[in-house]
Every structure is written in C-alpha cells, then in structure tokens.
Design a protein around this nucleic acid. Sequence first.
DNA 1: ATGTTC
Length: 484
Amino acid sequence: MSRRDYEIRQISPFIWQVEPFGEMSVPVRIYADSRLLEGIEQDGAGQQAMNVAHMPGIVRASLAMPDAHWGYGFPIGGVAAFDPERGGVVSPGGIGFDINCGVRLVASDLVEDDVKPRIDKIVRTLYQQVPCGVGSSKAIRKLSDKELRNLSRRGAAWTVEQGFGRPEDVEHTEEEGALDGADPSVLSARAIERGQPQVGTLGSGNHFMEVDVVREVYDEEVAEAFGVARGSVAFQIHCGSRGFGHQICSDFLKTMQKATSKYGISVPDKQLACAPLGRPEAEQYLAAMACGANYAWANRQVILALVVEGLEQVFGKDRDALGIRQVYDVCHNIAKMEEHDVDGQSRRLCVHRKGATRAFPAGHPAVPEDYREVGQPVLIPGDMGTASYLLVGADGAMDETWGSTCHGAGRVMSRKGAKKKAGGRNLKKELADRGVTVAWEGRSTLAEEMPEAYKDVDAVVSVMHEAGITRKVARLEPIGVVKG
DNA sequence: ATGTTC
C-alpha cells in the first residue's frame, strides 16, 4: 500500500471518507469495496475528488462512484453539487468533453434462438447502417445551420419529427430528450460546422452498439415494468455529442480560464476552471452545454432509427412485429439544476455528473409516468466481453448522492497500456470464443477496449446495490458488438 | 471523448 498524505476512514461497509484538510471545504466520499478503492486511489482519481472538494459553493461532499478513474480535472465517476446562493460554480471539467455521453437500451420480443444463428449478419448490418469511428459523418443528410440550431433547442423530439423513430421513444428518454435553456446563439461557428454532418454517427473509443441477451433477472416486478424478460434480446447504443460537444467544451474551457481569474477563484488544478452560477460565463456555458446534450439525445434517436431499419431488413419484419421498444435513455456526462433536500430544506443546486448516472427513485416526478411506481431505469454498460446491467434508482440516491449512481465498468488500464497488453493477441477470436461477434472501425479500438482494460462491472454495481443507491434489475450479456 | 497537436 502506498503512503498517503491524508487519512481515509471507512464510514459504512461501502463508503470511505476523507475529512476536509487544507483548503478543502467539504469531505470526500468514495463508494467502493476495498479493492476498487485501491484502484481509485492509485490512478489519482481520489486526489482529483479531493481537488473538487476545494471548489467554491460545493455542498456536503465531493463524491466518487466505484467506477471512478482519472479524468480532465474532475474524476470520471465524480458527482458534485454546487449552491448558487453560496458562491457555487459550474465547471466544464465536471461534465467532460463528451457532453451527454449516454446509453440507450431497447428491448425486443426476439429470443436468443432467433438471433444467434444470424448474429454475424446482424453485426455487419448495424456496422453498415451507422457510420463508426473518429470523424465519422454522413449517416443522414448534412443538416443546415438552421436545422442544427432547431435540433440543439429541441433534441430528440426534433429528429422524430424528421422521421427518425417514434414519440414513445422520447417519452422513455431522460429529460424527454431535451434540456430546457438550450441557446444556440452562444455557440461558435466551428461548433455548428462540426455538428452539421455528424448526426446519427457512433464515434469511437468506448462508444458502441451491442446485441445482448438478458441472462439474469434480479427483480421480476421491476423488470416487468421496464418490459425486459429473461432470455430476450436487447440492444444498447452508447455514444454522445461527437465533435459538436467536444468543440463546445473546448470553447468554454477558454472562457472559464479567464472567468476563474476574473472572479478571483482559487482552484488547486487549472483544469477545474469554473464560473459562479448566475454570472454570464456560467449561464452561457449552461446554455451551450444544453445544446450539446440535446444533440446527443438527437444523435442516439437517429441511431436507434438506423438500428431498427437494419433489424427490419435482417428479419423481414417491421418494428412492431419484432416487439422493439425503448426501455430508456440515460445521460452520464452533464450538469443540471435540480431540487435537492439539504439539511431539511429544499435547495436548487447545480449537480455535476461526470461519468455518473442520474438514478431517481420511485415517486420522483422526473421519472416517466409508466415507471414512476418502481423508479428510474439506470443503464450501466460493462466491457464488451462481460456484461451490462439494468438497475433502478432507490431512495438512498436522493439521501446521499444527489440522485446519482455509477456509469459503467470504468477503465482500469490506460489506452496505451491496453494496446501493449494486447500485442500479438487475436482479440476477435478471443471474443468469438466467449460467444461475442465483433465488428470495429479504428486500428487500435479493439485493443484499447479489451475486457481486461476495464474494472469488474459486477463489483461496481454490487457496491451501489449494497449501499442502497441503486438496485440490480437485470444482467445483460453481449453476443454481438460494433465498436467505433 | 476528439477532424486523437489550431
């Protein structure tokens, strides 16, 4: 064990706390088992969570989820809430470059025996339907400047009006696929240009489309409410806001560097650049970030339509005959103004979730009406050779984590480290031996994304389950994967 | 994550 210059104390079976020291204004709380904790401390994510605890107006604690790993400024797997009435800030580093990176889960009436014999064809079809890889474009026509601005304001609903998917998909999407307050007038010309040709594209890195079999159901009642049955086939789409969101983040990091000094804010890491909520820099960033978020929801909506079109071709049946229905679409890179209880008082806070997923419990008004009795679906993608999870928000999330949970397995190996480890191996065959057919675009994608590059997703979701933040509903295992 | 170093 490496020597620490701080003390960490176990305050419950799955929560570890660092009391404030130096200029920290709140403690750090890490959700983890002892093994996950060790990884979080070793790669610097723990130190990053301590840095976040220094920021102005942070409320209660700087939180790290069990999948936390090192990121730009804030850890990926970090959650922090800021109070505008106490000098609270918004920081682009607390959202991430890929604004509204997220996951969409689609259920079907297909079973493994319908799909397994044609899995090669299905994977090839999905790969052809959706442009994959860095710089991918031309999934649909290049949008005009005006169309992109409309899409930025209205998100997924705008794409449904253009003929991609159905209104009920939007009802089963976080925020119904559009954040309020999106204002394209604050966007740079370069952001608009980068966004125009990329709607309906997957991107690269950990972004994927996946064919899964629902192998285990832990909670029959909730699974039924979500329309997910043991043995059925489901589809996942994981991607974000492409070059558009990346450009928005880059543009506003520059704005925020200036704002940090303008408002006399002191942060322990330049990458925590931020502006006080209510100030023009903060409000403009939130308006731009909402555009990025809405683009990502529109992007996943178009990709869903392209996936459905491909499946209709393969099976020679239409969407209804295949029983294809959207379970939910979650975001895991965003900041939102939300009402939360703080010491018995309801307060409006800016909740940053970076590599963290909203997980509202039963009864919360933001949960779609047909799920409100059970709680919000939470989608946790794992690595491409192991499993993904469907969870449901629990009461503990509102009490402890600003209605948030983990977002995935979380990297345990750098991209470079993974490539080195994969040298000389035939990963396509290794995955085929595990029953996973894979297609991919980038030269190094398969190596960088190999299962060993990720933490144990079972351990990650178990921590949040045992801590009472989210409950396990179903475990999905991949049989076909398309990687960017 | 990213027209992977405007």
